[in-house]
């Protein structure tokens, strides 16, 4: 009996990500959820600009490539064009969602668009070579902050889940990570709930996944996963930031 295999919704091609990059894990979780909910045939994904720009090659469902940061806007259009038939999700990095796409993200959340957003937060710009991102931690060394991020000059990191949780719009916001097996299982549960919310027409769900970037952090893959525990989770606490239906049921 096969207990674990590659999900059907994930294409059988090698991923281009660096060794040890957790993008691959999150891709797999999304594909597993598409399989389990039986929505591969009607799902439409929107790929971002960033490391995961070629996500359209990796998912077997229909995919669209959006301009940098505009994935929630494209997803809004697709979902509104056919709200009953299609399940629309975006898969975005922190440079895409929290920087150039912040306006689209906030307004999609404020409008409570019935879409699912998977947000990969690895605290750095990966594809362009490790520049400082809006989510880079204070004193984090990057290509453009070689002496560490100076919060006086560069400001503070943006906590996207907390930011959006202040709005009345969004249905579900949760921050998870994938740095060990337990956290991977929790992440899958969160992603599944985010897709289920959309099927139940509840509205905007965003799952922030703390992810690693061993190449640009300059660490081994193992050390990078430890760094998530040591540095990222204290600044970006895990947990559910908003679950409107659960609150209403109480």
């Amino acid at each position: 009996m096969v207990v674990f295999d590659k999900p059907h919704a994930l294409a059988d091609v090698p991923l281009h990500y660096c060794p040890g990059c957790t993008h691959g894990i999150v891709h797999r979780l999304v594909a597993e959820v598409l399989d389990e909910l039986g929505i591969e045939g009607k799902a439409i994904g929107v790929a971002p600009v960033g490391c995961s720009v070629m996500a359209y090659d990796y998912f077997n469902c229909d995919m669209i490539e959006a301009a940098h940061g505009r994935a929630p806007a494209v997803a809004t259009g697709v979902k509104r064009a056919d709200p009953d038939e299609h399940i629309v999700f975006t898969y975005q990095g922190d440079g895409d969602l929290a920087s150039i796409g912040m306006a689209e993200t906030v307004h999609a959340a404020a409008r409570n668009e019935n879409i699912t957003i998977i947000f990969i937060n690895n605290a750095i710009y990966g594809m362009t070579g490790g520049q400082m991102a809006p989510t880079s931690l204070p004193n984090q060394v990057t290509q453009t902050s070689p002496y560490g991020r100076d919060v006086k000059a560069c400001g503070f990191p943006i906590r996207v889940c907390e930011l959006l949780s202040e709005l009345d719009g969004p249905e579900y916001l949760e921050r998870v990570t994938v740095n060990n097996v337990k956290n991977i299982r929790n992440a899958k549960k969160a992603i599944k709930k985010a897709f289920q919310n959309q099927i139940d027409k509840k509205g905007f769900s965003l799952i922030e996944v703390l992810s690693s970037c061993p190449t640009n952090w300059g660490m081994t893959p193992q050390k990078a996963l430890e760094w998530i525990d040591e540095k990222m989770i204290p600044y970006y606490p895990l947990g559910v930031y908003k679950d409107r239906s659960a609150k209403e049921e109480k």
Partner: peptide
């Protein structure tokens, strides 16, 4: 023992687990 922890952690879906 086929716990599949390795397969869960693998970012590239290299491992298939049978039991």
């Amino acid at each position: 023992v086929g716990c599949a922890f390795c397969a869960q952690m693998c970012p590239d879906c290299v491992i298939k687990v049978e039991r």
